[in-house]
Design a protein around this nucleic acid. Sequence first.
DNA 1: GCAAGGTC
Length: 934
Amino acid sequence: MHLIIAEKNIVAERIAAFLSGKEKVQAVKDGAATHYIFDDTIVMGLRGHVVEVDFIDGYKNWRSADHPPRSLIDADIIKIPTEKKIVGLLQKFSRKATRVTIATDYDTEGELIGKEALELIRAVNTKVVIDRARFSAITREEIIKAISEATPLDFNLASAGESRQIIDLVWGASLTRFLSITAHRGADSILSVGRVQSPTLAMIVDREREIEAFVPTLYWVLTLVTKKDGAELEARHVHGRFTDSAEAKAAYDATKSPLIVTEVITGHKIDRAPAPLDTTALIVGAGRLGISASYAMNRAEDLYMRGFISYPRTDNTTYPKSLKIAEHLKIFSHGAFAGDARYVKEHMRDVPTRGKKETTDHPPIYPTSLAAREDIGDDVSWKLYEFIVRRFFATICIDAEWETMKVNMSASAEPYTITGGRILEAGWRGVYPYSKAEENILPVFTVGETLPLLSKNSEEKETQPPARYTQSRLIQRMEELGLGTKSTRHEVISKLAGRKYIEGNPMKPTIVGRAVTESLEHFAGTITEPTMTKTLEEHMGDIAAGKKPMEAVLSESRKMLAGIFDDLEKNQDAIGHGLMERTREEQIIGPCPVCGKPLQIKRVGSSQFIGCSGYPDCTFNAGLPPATWGNAVKMDEVCEEHKLNHVQLLRKGAPAWKIGCPLCSHIKTNSDAFMLIPGMTAEGIKKLNAAHIYTISELISQGPVPLSQIFGLSRSAAEKYIFDAQGVLGLLKKRTEMKKFISAHVVPRRGRGHSKVSTALISMGVTDIEALAKANPGDLLEAKLSEAEAASLVTDAKNMIDAAKMKEYGVPAITLKKYVNAGLGDPEKFIAVHPAGVSLATGVSVTTICNHQKLVAEKLCRPCPEKISKAAFEEGIAPLREKAGEDVLIPLALAGVYRPAQLAKADAKMLAKVTGIDVKQISELQKYAKKVSE
DNA sequence: GCAAGGTC
């Protein structure tokens, strides 16, 4: 059997289709892995790397004394399967195979993935022939040729990849552990370090430093307005920016009539069509469409999987020869782009454009099939697809051509100029609206003609600091510097954001991000420089070419890292203090309104709040929504009034919740509560806030004397305030309880969250659970509840109130549960029934029940129900049990009938009515009871 | 709990 291994499932599927010819391919789906069978061949796809490098056992614990971060430098490394199912399948087929062909992507990483597969195969089959097929396009001809001309695996090339894996792991893991431990950070706040992420972060930090160090300077731009053929035109002074104000002033003053045309130059300009799309260009284009890098890649992956575009992870900007352009264009001759395709056909260039790079693994990104708007689904995917289609069109269209015009003139002696342009041939611009170039058609001027000088202007401007990086600009820069790959660049940005090293778009570093970069620059500069990647790539080239063994490169790298650790360990205390000091700043938001010491964002478990660093001497604090709504993070904006930084809550996948100034928000939330106190005014709240009383509980704990001073009131008036405030506090507690109750009992739906329901109920006057229990379900429909929901909500509320009352009266929780289960949770109902029945229904002894009924009756000021002894109950019920089941005995006993004699004497009709039991059945039972009682 | 690189 011939086993063929591809890097991914989709390639396996296509290889099978090409090789099978007319033979039918059987696709076998086995959970995570699919394989394809025809003749005596099996084609299976891997999932990229199916194994991962890691340290041998014993290095798991970061804080182990035996294995400190430094020891990772020389720790043994093993490969661990990460895709167990695929590895299992691969080894199962390998045992039976007579030939294995590795057909992974044609690049270094593909060779390494191939070697990983080879090692897995060799572990179970030492003899089978293993060869390697190399193809640069997934077409029938290429694939068939590559398989028939398969060569041995290139172990040197695979080793080059392996050295990268090991160096990245060793440097990344050891430095990450060192820094995190040194700064006392753990769990979700580790400080990560890596060959790609650290230089990328350093670029963002550098840019921020440039912005901070930037000193704006003034400059002046001179323009004048003239008129020709009825149209006003603006001309610029040819000097451009004047940096000297005196010079600008002199030129301005010298700008006078007559204004005479001195020169008219017309030219011709070629406006080249863009190159084919690679991943970076796709991300840049998506960025212009307002799509983030990660989301663009996510949608592109989806378009690829559905067959609309070619593989989206590529560095290639040259179409393969196998792509027949004219043929391919025909795909679009109908559908949404039919008109554009016709235009392209009429404006086609001989050979498509090509970019700087030509690689062997994948073609540039181009549309592989026609899709209609409704095939695609979401708007973003469609925008992206349209962009890819139009870019493809642009790359096969002729260049655009412009006629350029330049009119030089002289105002007295000052030289001015007007430039314009006219499209002679639109070419690719006719189908590619993403980079606009405006035409500016000028009237015809002649040399020597005099123009009117309508006005002149000297505009004062300021030089601007460099701009922060946008995602796409950063990805372009990373590509220029060789950082990361087409598949990973956008992920690096997400990683930096996830570590809270950077924030916002355009991106800026956080204090932590800056502190980490600065520590690394100081003590482990190598890892913050793109040069590390450059050097690594050179070494990888040497290994691939067989000029250097992998071991030599690894030991050199390890030696270098050990040198860095010498430095790091010597300065460990200083690094730790520095990092902790700096990262503490991230939490400080300004002065405490009470004592002036720094206020901090604090977190205990999932609850977070603003607290004073002077605690416990100063107890000022202001609550924030719990961390489930997002982590509280300091912002740059500062509140004018309180001099506190604004705060926002950040949660993955959700827009930021901007709290604003936490003190303003604290005051606002609590003023609603203050206003519930009778007689309270906005003026009164201001007085309270001025005395640093922000909440009702703070008011209550004031004591009447200080409060009377604050308000300028008598002591007794202040006492009344406190009393009323206590009432409001109780009310608010009940409100909170009800909100909790609602969120536990109402299923949230679109447009109807828990808080919406609660707010609606409160505005209807249903402010606590007790009110809810007494409410008429029909009245609750306004709160967006269905009839069934309203009814069950009221029942639940009533049950809860009942249970709370019974508990308060002294019924223990376990027994109470039994009463509730029997439907006797309502105190009124509980004392209205006979203990014998309760006992039968719940299994609780009659004595206990009598005690409980007495407790409840006393609290409700009702007469106590009949008390019976256990013996009397047992004696009475025993004979009846012979003849009747529980379904009959319980209702009878609840009505007080539990002895034969009693039953015999009772009025059958009445009893039937009270218990709901059939009269005939009662009469039957009575006959028996008579007999027994005689 | 760590990197970067594949792929879903």
